[in-house]
């Protein structure tokens, strides 16, 4: 969908034509679901949290100010908060924002078919700081722009670019590539 068309849809929603929200949903439903799934690894949880995200967005669409940022960032922010709330409820005594923080901190529901794969991914992502990990996942898996990442995380674009750059530089320097190839080889067996 062209950006100008999305802008019009948002304007219509803000003007009270809430039925236009369906078009925004069509545009973002899968992306938001995947964003949440990457943080929860459980289909039903991701579906529930995605539902919450869109209902919250619909209820609060009139609070969205296009002058203050992108709609996509706003929506992703709601999704991110929903995930945080979910983990805080699940693991009240632990400081967890997403599933990658959970290593060794208790059992959780996970999709069985992805479990082994996700464990290998977790081992890899452990090399990053939590902030770097967020930026890498959002840039490469979620394919978000730096502007979107910056608005979601409340940081500057330059800062997000730097974090991503340092994450990749670190990988290269530590010669993780060999381990990645090995991991990838296991995955395809």
């Amino acid at each position: 969908m062209e950006k100008i068309e999305e802008k019009k849809i948002i304007e219509n929603c803000l003007a009270g034509n809430l039925e236009e929200f369906g078009k925004l949903y069509d545009l973002y439903a899968e992306r938001i679901y995947r964003f949440i799934y990457f943080k929860t690894h459980h289909r039903e949880t991701a579906q529930d949290l995605a539902s919450q995200t869109f209902f919250k967005a619909l209820e609060n669409i009139r609070n969205f100010d296009p002058a203050k940022g992108l709609f996509s960032s706003w929506l992703y922010r709601i999704a991110a908060n929903s995930v945080i709330d979910h983990w805080r409820k699940q693991k009240k005594n632990l400081n967890i924002d997403d599933i990658w923080d959970l290593r060794g901190k208790g059992s959780i529901a996970q999709d069985a078919e992805n479990k082994d794969h996700l464990e290998r991914v977790r081992q890899y992502l452990e090399k990053f700081s939590p902030e770097q990990r967020q930026v890498v996942i959002m840039r490469v898996w979620d394919e978000l722009s730096y502007r979107e990442i910056a608005e979601i995380l409340g940081k500057s674009e330059a800062s997000c670019k730097m974090m991503f750059s340092r994450a990749l530089s670190r990988l290269r320097k530590e010669e993780i590539l060999a381990i990645l190839i090995l991991l990838f080889s296991f995955k395809i067996i």
Binding site: Y37, L118, V136, W141, L183, F184, K187
Partner: peptide, 10 residues
């Protein structure tokens, strides 16, 4: 590296 990160996406 980027290719492998993409491949690791669940």
């Amino acid at each position: 590296i980027l290719f492998e990160i993409v491949q690791l996406r669940p």
